[in-house]
Structures are given as C-alpha cells and as structure tokens.
Amino acid sequence: MLKKCMGDPSLIKPTEDIGIKDSLCYDKIPVQIQDRQVRKLRTKEVASVKDLWRNQFVEEATWEAEEDMKKRYPHLFESREVLT
C-alpha cells in the first residue's frame, strides 16, 4: 500500500540561483561519410549519403541529401573525389 509523502519545502532551490542557460543546444559535427545511395523516385533520382555525426554524448549516423551536405560540409567530399 502506498503512503502519502510530504516534501520538504526547504530543499526547493529557485532557478535564478542555479543559473540555467536559455539556449541549451549543441553543434552536430559530421565526422565522415559512411555510404552513398541513389534512390529512384517516379520522375527523378535523389543521391543520399550516410553521415556519421559526433555529438557530445553519442555518435549517430543519418541519411542526408548529398547536394545539401556538399554545400554545408565540402571538406568531407574532398578526399572522396581524389580516390575516384
């Protein structure tokens, strides 16, 4: 059976004293391109690349449009063009 618990109001800290930032975001940094794939739609073909991202806590991979990635992160494609 559960019992009612009364909290201690003296333990509650106001957020002004802690100093919480309004902007709690971080930058995602691409590390490398793992794979390339061309998807065929009805009227066109879309090239995608699988990017490995480095975050503060976890590394994750996502599929992104190749054109957008070349515009934002051209350094990832420089070493790849030399090899081909």
Rank of each mutant, 00 (worst) to 15 (best):
I18W: 11
I20D: 01
D8A: 00
E16R: 13
I12Q: 15
Q32V: 10
P9Q: 06
I20W: 02
D27R: 12
D17N: 04
P9H: 07
P30S: 07
P9C: 06
V31E: 05
S10L: 10
P30G: 03
E16M: 07
L11M: 12
C5G: 00
P9T: 02
D27H: 11
V31C: 07
K4I: 05
K4S: 04
K21H: 04
S10G: 11
K4V: 05
I12K: 15
G7Y: 15
L24F: 04
P30Q: 08
P14V: 03
K4T: 03
I20C: 01
K4L: 09
K4G: 00
I33S: 01
G19M: 08
D22C: 07
D22E: 14
L11V: 06
I29P: 00
K4A: 03
K21M: 06
C25E: 09
I20G: 00
K28F: 11
T15A: 14
L24R: 14
P30H: 06
Y26L: 09
K28Y: 11
K13E: 00
C25K: 15
L24S: 04
S23T: 07
E16S: 11
M6S: 08
S23Q: 11
P14H: 02
L11Y: 08
V31W: 02
D17R: 13
P9G: 04
I29G: 00
L24C: 04
S10N: 12
D27K: 14
K13I: 08
D22L: 13
Y26E: 05
K13A: 02
P14S: 09
I33Y: 02
V31N: 01
D22W: 12
L11K: 15
S23D: 10
C5R: 10
S10C: 06
T15I: 14
K28T: 00
T15P: 06
I12M: 12
G7D: 10
K13V: 06
I20H: 01
E16H: 12
K4R: 09
P30D: 05
S10M: 12
I18H: 07
E16K: 11
K21F: 03
P9E: 04
D8N: 08
S23H: 11
P9A: 08
G19N: 03
P14G: 05
G7I: 14
I12L: 14
